[in-house]
Amino acid sequence: MRCQLAIATIFAVMVMAGQAGAEDGNRGKVLYKAYCSQCHGMEADGYGVNAGYMEIQPKDHTEAKEMNARTDDDLFKAIRDGGKAINKSVLMPAWGKNISEEDIWALVRYLREISATED
């Protein structure tokens, strides 16, 4: 009986964690479309509608090799404080006043998802 209860609890926790992950992924996707897609592209490949007018090509977020070279903290810092904060282009603005820290982390996790990379 105790064993069955433990299995049911683990199962429930896994389902809840899965739901939370899906909600977080969806949140990251919405935020990406709102704030990032204009430059980084609807498919996150760096070819957004503004990219043709920029002196530096926006980063391709689907490029696993480049994304692997960045830690989660780097990505968080780049979004919050802008490209300059991690010695990258000033054309990447600081979003820290527009997007909450919680939402920036949702974006970081979304970037990991679309690039199939890990911290």
């Binding site: 897609s37 204009q38 592209g41 070819y47 509608v49 990219a51």
Partner: peptide, 13 residues
């Protein structure tokens, strides 16, 4: 909002 009017093409969005 440009995302509502964007099409993805071979030459970029």
């Amino acid at each position: 909002f440009s995302g509502n009017h964007t099409v993805v093409t071979d030459d970029g969005d």
